[in-house]
Design a protein around this nucleic acid. Structure first.
Lengths: 346, 346
DNA sequence: CTTGGCACTCGAGACCAGGGAGTGCCAGAC
DNA sequence: GTCTGGCACTCCCTGGTCTCGAGTGCCAAG
């Protein structure tokens, strides 16, 4: 079928353009790939592909370049994620295994990803839904001011100030101690989700004079805990790879650099990835940010429980539309899996 | 004196070159600045300045450009840090006053600095030497594992795991409680420096069966505290301003981006600033990194106690050698002062 | 449907000339 | 001694023209 060959031509164009960074013509195409036909035939095919909007020429009498739609078809139908070599897998495992704590895992992941893909890497901090409340502490700082410290099983520590209303009675040491015990009883050992629910109940159940303080403290604690159902911190790495953009520098570099500083924007970029194993590819203007229309995003959810439960965070890379999709996708997927595995262990 | 005029010429050259980004010639110089002499005279002066290595010409028959040495003289002798306008000062104060905690102060500072100077801003986390230990908590997690939590008056919270040697006896709740009390007695309320000393003593003074545990815990705690004598975290902002470098892109951008990711390198860049008020300017190759030879660093120490006590952290900007030194220096100094003031209050 | 041939288009690079900005130097004026 | 005007010189930048080559589109033949 010609249809089949046309797609082969598209694949060849994408591969060549990604490799050489130059518009690719019919003649060089038949030379490099062993399509069994002549340049003239390729030209006809290319005319059709252009008709379909999959490729374009920068100007008359130049080679062809894939359009966003062309890359889309390439990613969806023409490429298979190329598996990593055993050596690469070993290197990834070794690199990530050296991590000592959560911060280190994230740090190493972002470096690894940047190095493997030669793109800008983004890793969102994971939220461990299996995480439980390890300890809660309540300390008086000043007569009307308490400090609440929350420690999760993941090692995350969060502290909040609790300012009392001027109207409220200043609690004495015993009251504080009792409230501390209340909070601990309700939450320690529970998962973050369960702890949130327990706190909601707590206020109504505690009687007597310390009700006001409990309500106040429980509210603050619930806040702190619920913040940990989704962690919005992200880490960026490999910015130096931006220099490889080379062309289209001014047009796309500035908004990109700006976006990389706006972590909220990055979270949007990583976007809604589905279950853990899921690989998302956003090409060009498909993404949520029109300023970044000449870049693509390859992202994956990750998290413990690689069995397909909802992902707890996302990681990925952002790079020029003209990128090595199979290789990049393989790297992102591999890192996501290894990080998931590591989180599973600990 | 001609000497005097020559320096005026140098000043004019620096100002014009910074403004126009183009080599400046004798004729345009007399036009723009009202030096009372003819272009020919300027040419003679320029010849001398070139002899002295303060200016250079990119090629014969082009205007002159300041050399690093020229900028040095300009900064040291020819420019006065121009004071910020009242409006600017108000804006700075308003922007920084909105900060809710230390993280926020740092975050805002870096943004502010980037915005004011249009350069890449770097802010090191401050170490509050006036900071005291507010609370210490010791909790059993598992039979042979304890969690140590340290809370400083600055709001920083640090937690450490204490793993006991297999050989040691597993402490019961009472012992843990006693040790906790020991630690608290030694450190709570003390400055970080005093607390460190107290802990060193503690181990030798506590008798009896809990000596082993105290020694162990005190060691960990001392570690945690001493980490807070110098905070090596830095925050970078305004990377998007790099796009304004324009020229010399490839040569200097990549190493710069790489350096910006290596926080250790950045600390070296901010370098040894003296007392709080001190403004340091490193021009071109004067800096510690030869890769960044075409950039300058303007930094200042800051910290509470603007009275001249040693600075506790540094902040600054890095930008192209060709920058508006007076303006940049004013901005860096102003931000350093305001941040210092804010830290003083809290 | 494929192929070879052919004319056409258009960008990239080489080459050249003119204009202009800037310099260095020198002789004369203050 | 210092400044100034004049002058010749150097080089970069710009724009125009030309050629070359890669690549296309189309057409007629296999």
């Amino acid at each position: 079928m010609q249809e089949e060959r046309r797609l082969a031509v598209l694949r060849a164009i994408v591969q060549d353009y990604v490799a050489t960074k130059e518009p690719v013509g019919s003649k060089t195409l038949v030379e490099r790939h062993s399509l069994g036909v002549s340049p003239a035939t390729i030209r006809n095919d290319m005319a059709v592909l252009e008709e379909e909007g999959l490729i374009a020429q920068p100007h008359t009498s130049a080679g062809r370049v894939p359009t966003d739609a062309g890359y889309r078809v390439f990613v969806d139908r023409l490429s298979q994620v190329k598996p990593m070599s055993a050596a690469e897998r070993r290197a990834i495992a070794a690199f990530l295994d050296g991590a000592v704590d959560l911060d280190d895992v994230v740090q190493r992941s972002v470096r690894l990803l940047a190095q493997l893909t030669h793109q800008v890497a983004i890793v969102q901090y994971p939220v461990l839904s299996g995480s439980t409340v390890r300890h809660v502490e309540l300390v008086s700082l000043a007569p009307a001011r308490l400090l609440l410290v929350l420690i999760l099983s993941t090692g995350r520590v969060e502290q909040r100030l609790v300012d009392l209303d001027p109207g409220d009675a200043v609690p004495d040491a015993e009251t504080v101690s009792a409230v501390r015990a209340d909070l601990q009883r309700a939450t320690v050992g529970a998962s973050v989700v369960a702890a949130g629910d327990a706190l909601a109940d707590l206020a109504s159940r505690v009687p007597g004079e310390r009700a006001a303080l409990v309500t106040r403290a429980a509210g603050v604690l619930a806040d702190a805990i619920s913040d940990h159902r989704s962690d919005e911190r992200v880490v960026v790495g490999g910015t130096a790879n931006l220099t490889r953009f080379g062309d289209a520098f001014d047009t796309s570099l500035k908004p990109l650099l700006e976006a990389l500083e706006e972590h909220v924007v990055l979270l949007k970029l990583l976007g809604e990835t589905g279950s853990s194993g899921d690989l998302t590819v956003r090409i060009g203007a498909e993404g949520p940010l029109q300023e970044l229309s000449s870049t693509s995003v390859v992202a994956s959810g990750y998290g413990p429980g690689a069995d397909g439960s909802a992902a707890l965070a996302a990681l990925g890379i952002v790079g020029p539309t003209r990128m090595d999709y199979p290789g990049t996708m393989a790297a992102v997927r591999a890192v996501a899996r290894y990080v998931s595995a590591i989180l599973d262990e600990s």
